[in-house]
Each structure stands twice: as structure tokens, then as C-alpha cells.
Design a protein around this nucleic acid. Structure first.
Length: 484
RNA sequence: GUGAGUGUAGCUCAGUCGGUAGAGCACCAGGUUGUGGCCCUGGUGGCCGUGGGUUCGAGUCCCAUCACUCACCCCA
């Protein structure tokens, strides 16, 4: 029997993780802090399904992004019919099924796991536009899935914490989101973070001014985004390979290499003037950024946290206005939070176009950094008190039952030891190993001292951290535990 | 999707020139049947990732495959 049974590996799917209590507790603490701040800003919770219809998901994240969507196989007759159609298609094909892979995978699936929370929000807004408050401020904390190859800080299933404001094009909303982001990272005591800000349409203008056509815009962004990593020469080489215009790059570097914090106003003004000169005129995006920065400063953002970064691009296709990203001191883990304005996305699901701005926190990455820096406290998740019943009979159980009732009534968690009957030392040892701070020992001596009044129940209690042991009344014991 | 590295006990890893497996930690039992942490003794536990090949003989050499890790790509 046992020999024939092939061992099934208990590992979770690649890039997906189990979260054991010890790791989950600190994560939940982080989530609690976030939710509290979301609510303080007036955001409301929303939940949506883990799956969306495939047509909702595709075409929003760029070509690379679309490839990473988890597709869900059709079911039942629908699948059967589709497979038969595919087989028919293949019979006429000389190249065989190989060349048809993409077509097949699209034909046999009609649902997909959500890739982010923003697209689902846009769908919800399009569906319930009349019922939702305007503007609609919502937060959502939920898993998303990407069929990426996992590496440090990168998973196939991870939790995003999204906050978005839908239904206003006011720059105040952009500023509010950025302020909230700063509040969160400060609340978490996150060390050395910065908010990088840019504008999608400014990038478009820069690309155009360099001599690129509009369909080369994505390539331009992708290449420019790598400036930090591979430097000017690397980007220039990359742009050449992508068939982009490179003649005006030297001029562009003069602009793109400057990193201006928004409180250093003179520098920033000078840079903006230089950009205007490069563009050969003003651009709406620059005016918006100036307004945004001024507003942020007036609202009281802390020094040296928000900085203008012309090389920041952001990969998702749906962004249309100001974009931003939070980076920590360790760049290898990627961005910790990213967002921006996406005024066209809701319009993809509805006749009316509804402007929106929002952000997404990468919970796993934030927790990982906080963990590495030792900023998350491992919480003791076990009970406060282990009851050790030495008698292991009716009398003992009845007495333990009374003790536990009083303890729980006073807000002290406890459990009856599962090893009753085993050696006392063994039971104490197990309690200690499980991180339980106190044990109460119930034997003949304690029961014989029992009086009628509850207050007079006597227990033998031991604090495991220092071994201090007392024989005392139950209420005294409650107070002893609560002192800690 | 591309490239590199690593797979031996629950965990961290040894394993020489090819001769059918070892340590530490953890776990279980005992060292006075009502007192833990230290110490001592003993014990459980491995198809050496999987499948083929070379060989009298493979954890070790070769091939394939899978998994994990890192980097690219992209992102949270």
C-alpha cells in the first residue's frame, strides 16, 4: 500500500507562497496600518472577483503585460466545441499546431486571473456609474496573479493594496494620492524612501521632440526607464536597437540626468525652462506638474521625499497623466508602490469617459524590506496560559474548567494541555517551546485548597521567562499576567 | 521567453581518486511518576530531485527532465 503510493510534493505552485502564522502576523499589522490611513482619507472598501472575463483584462497592460495574464481553461461543452474547431483548423495546416499556439490559447480560455486591481475597478465604475458616489474613493487589498518568472521580491501571486479616486480630473486628487502614499510609508517607519514623479504626456512630448513617431513611444519609455541601471551609453545603444532616433540624445541627457527635489524650487524652475527650450515651446504636462508640485509643497510634504524624475516611465499602458513610483534604498527589489493618472481606462468599458487617479502598494516588497531591517516585531501568537492538569480525572477536569472560564472571562487566553498525564517537566517544556509565557499547575494540593467562593480558588502558577513560581488566588494570578 | 548556478535526513550542510551514506540542529524516549531551559545516554528518520546511459560497481562521470535561486525582460 505505502510502497505503491507516489509521494505528492507538498510545495505550493511556483512563485506562490504559504504564509505561516509567524510571517503572516507582521504582514497583517502592516495591512492594519494601511487600512486605518485609507479610512482617514475617506476611502471605502471594495471587493471584486479574482477572475475577470479575458476581454476585460487584455490590451490594458501592454504586449509584455498581456503575456503574463493567467488564462483559465473553458469548461464543459464549450471547451469540447472549441477543441473540435481547433482540430479542424489544424487539419488544413501544413505547419501543424506549433504555429497556432497563441490562437489556441486564446480560443480555449475565456476567463483570466486578475493582473491588477485597477482594471477591475474601472470595470466596476463603468457598470455602477450611477450608483456610486462621485468622485468614488475606494481601496482594495487583494491578491493578483502574474505568470512571471519569480525572483527576489517578485512572485506569481502577490497582494496589492490599491487606493484610487475615480471621477475627477482635479490635480488635487493626484496630490491627495501622493500625500497618502507618503503618510503610509512614514507610518510604517520605512527607511529612506523617495517618491519619483513624472508625466506621461511629457514623455510623449520628449519622444516626439527627439524625432520619434508616436508608435515608438512605448519603446522610448522602456529604454529611457533604464537610465539608472545602464547609463547614457546603454540607453543610447538600446534606443538604436529599437530603431529610435538618437541624434538629439546628448541634449536630452542634460535634462534627464538632473534629479530635482521639488522643494529646491530654483533648480526645478531652471530645469523646466530647459525642457521647454528642448521641446521648442510650452507643454500642458509641464504646467500640470508645476501646479502639482506647488500644491504638494503648500500642503506640507516633508523635505527631500518627492522628486521630479524625467526617466521614470512606468510600464502599464493605461496611464495618461502624472505618474509616480516609490523606491527604497535597495533598488534590486524593484518599486514598492506605483501609480498615476489614467483618464481613459474607464472609457474602455463605458460610453462615457471618466477620469481617475490612483496607486498600488506592493505589500510583499514593503514587508520584505521592513523585515530585512528588523522593523517588524514577531508577535507571540500562542495563548497566555497553559493549564497543566496533573490529575487527569473528572475532578481535575472540572477544576481546570472553572479556572479557564475565569481566565477567559478576564481576557486571558488559555488552553488545557493536550499532554495531560505525561510528565510535568515534559508539559512545561512543551509550553515553553510554544512560546506560552505562563503555566498553571493543577493537582491535588490546589484542589484541596479550593473554597466555595471563586476568588478563593488557589492555583500554582509559573512564569516561564524567569521561572518565578507562586501559589496564589485566581484573581491575583489574573493581575499578575496583566502586569506584563 | 533568454542566460547562469544549485538539488544528499524536517532544517543547515559534509561526502576525497567512482566501492551500495555522515555531522550539527530539530524530533522521540530515558536519566526520582509535581517542575522546562544546561548536561549525559539511546532512538526514529534518506530510492542522494526524477528518468535514462557509461561501468563489475554511480551520491560521485555523461545525457535528458523537473524544481528552486539569481540575473535579463518587465513590474508591485
Amino acid at each position: 500500500m505505502k510502497q505503491n503510493k507516489k509521494q505528492i510534493k507538498p510545495a505550493p505552485p511556483r512563485g506562490m507562497r504559504d504564509h505561516l502564522p509567524a510571517q503572516l502576523r507582521p504582514r497583517l499589522q502592516v495591512v492594519d496600518k494601511m487600512v486605518r490611513i485609507f479610512e482617514l482619507y475617506g476611502f471605502q472598501p471594495l471587493e471584486t472577483p479574482a477572475m475577470e472575463r479575458l476581454e476585460i483584462l487584455t490590451g490594458k497592460y501592454g504586449d509584455e503585460g498581456d503575456k503574463l495574464i493567467y488564462k483559465v481553461l473553458k469548461r464543459g461543452d464549450d471547451l469540447k466545441r472549441t477543441l473540435e474547431e481547433v482540430l479542424l483548423l489544424n487539419q488544413g495546416s501544413e505547419t501543424g499546431p506549433v504555429g497556432l499556439t497563441d490562437q489556441i490559447s486564446n480560443a480555449v480560455s475565456d476567463l483570466g486571473l486578475r493582473y491588477d486591481l485597477t482594471v477591475s475597478l474601472a470595470r466596476v465604475v463603468a457598470q455602477y456609474a450611477n450608483e456610486l458616489p462621485k468622485p468614488f474613493k475606494r481601496y482594495q487589498i487583494a491578491s493578483v496573479w502574474r505568470a512571471d518568472r519569480p525572483q527576489r521580491g517578485r512572485f506569481r501571486e502577490f497582494i496589492q493594496c490599491d487606493v484610487d479616486i475615480v471621477g475627477t480630473d482635479s490635480i488635487v486628487a493626484d496630490a491627495e494620492i501622493i500625500l497618502l502614499v507618503i503618510d503610509i510609508f512614514q507610518e510604517l517607519d520605512f527607511p529612506g524612501f523617495e517618491v519619483l514623479v513624472n508625466h506621461r504626456r511629457l514623455l510623449k512630448a520628449l519622444s516626439k521632440a527627439c524625432g520619434n513617431t508616436s508608435d515608438q513611444f512605448t519603446n522610448f519609455c522602456t529604454a529611457l526607464d533604464k537610465l539608472d541601471k545602464i547609463g547614457r551609453d546603454g540607453v543610447a545603444k538600446d534606443m538604436k536597437e529599437r530603431g529610435l532616433e538618437t541624434t538629439k540624445l546628448d541634449e536630452l541627457w542634460e535634462l534627464a540626468d538632473q534629479r530635482c527635489y521639488i522643494e529646491t524650487k530654483d533648480e526645478l524652475n531652471r530645469l523646466f525652462q530647459n525642457i521647454r527650450a528642448f521641446l521648442g515651446g510650452d507643454d500642458e504636462s509641464l504646467v500640470q506638474l508645476e501646479e502639482l508640485f506647488k500644491l504638494l509643497e503648500n500642503l506640507g510634504i516633508p523635505d527631500s521625499i518627492v522628486r521630479f524624475d524625467q526617466a521614470l516611465a512606468r510600464g502599464l499602458d493605461y496611464y495618461t497623466g502624472p505618474v509616480f513610483e516609490v523606491v527604497g534604498s535597495d533598488p534590486s527589489i524593484g518599486s514598492l508602490c506605483g501609480g498615476g493618472r489614467y483618464d481613459e481606462l474607464v472609457g474602455m468599458f463605458s460610453k462615457q469617459s471618466i477620469p481617475a487617479v490612483g496607486t498600488s502598494f506592493g505589500l510583499e516588497r514593503i514587508v520584505e524590506v521592513l523585515n530585512d531591517k528588523g522593523l517588524l516585531e514577531a508577535e507571540n501568537a500562542s495563548v497566555d496560559v497553559e493549564i497543566i492538569d496533573l490529575l487527569n480525572n473528572e475532578l481535575g477536569a472540572a477544576f481546570c474548567g472553572r479556572v479557564m472560564k475565569i481566565l477567559k472571562h478576564n481576557g486571558i487566553s488559555c488552553e488545557l494541555g493536550y499532554d495531560r498525564g505525561k510528565k510535568t517537566g515534559k508539559q512545561i517544556k512543551n509550553a515553553d517551546k510554544n512560546g506560552i509565557p505562563y503555566v498553571v499547575i493543577i493537582g491535588e494540593d490546589e484542589i484541596n485548597q479550593k473554597h466555595v467562593e471563586i476568588d478563593d480558588i488557589i492555583v500554582t502558577a509559573k512564569r516561564l521567562s524567569d521561572g518565578e513560581q507562586k501559589r496564589l488566588g485566581i484573581i491575583e494570578f489574573v493581575n499578575w499576567v496583566k502586569e506584563q
